[in-house]
Amino acid sequence: MEKTVNQRAWLLVIPVLILVAFSSIIPMMTVVNYSFQDSFGGNEFFWVGLEWYRELLHSERLWDAFGRQLLFSFIILLIEIPLGILVALSMPKKGFAASICLVLMSLPLLIPYNVVGTIWQVFGRADIGLLGRALSDLGISYNYSQNAFDAWATVIMMDVWHWTSLVALLSYAGLRSIPSAYYQAAKIDQAGRWSVFRHIELPKMRGVLMIAILLRFMDSFMIYTEPFVLTGGGPGNATTFLSIDLVKMALGQFDLGPAAAFSLMYFLVILLISYVFYTVMITADKNEANR
């Protein structure tokens, strides 16, 4: 029987193409155009070539924000991934308690970003906040709006509080998908708890953990609302991450050209990291399937 080639299915892709064009491609083209020009408002632009890129690449401000951003992402991954796994391992396996745990773990994920920032802003206040007041009563000097270390600690705690449950839920899903035969085999071999985790659970969770790391890294690398509401990027520039700096430049100073160049460099870094993660994930999946 001869196969009939029917290319009409391509028409179904058109709506998505139009949507992507309007939401991504056209804005991206505009940003590229802006990044090579200067504007004084009134939709008038002047060609400046690579000037903004040169200025930014030699700017201490950008490199400092980049360093802070990498450090932040590194710290939160270091805390959230092991903590999420630990929470998932401690969660009940079945029954009513498991359902309650799942609902409770999902709650922080449902709270809007700006509300999370506001909650922690109040929570950390030394006069009325539970955390701030408790630390003050214990004689610990804590003020996230004036001390850079306190601001960092609060931003990290806030992110851990908000997002560890995502890692926990993903890990839990990974754990639930392990066939019971593996545990039975481990029992026959009299494997200890650590061996079960190291040789069964961790390898079987690798796929979901890669997704968790990718999601958390990308999200933390683009973090804006929570630290902006909590500290406004301060004290000084202590918690000014890349996106906060970018918004200050684009909307605060209305420097469209430099902000566009900044956005493109930011985008390139994110694209590179996403591609590396994606490739590692796909390669790991293929190796797993070939075993």
């Binding site: 505009t30 590229v32 155009n33 090579f36 020009q37």
Partner: peptide, 8 residues
């Protein structure tokens, strides 16, 4: 508004 130039 897209501020097109020949090089871009």
């Amino acid at each position: 508004w897209m501020a097109w130039t020949l090089p871009t």
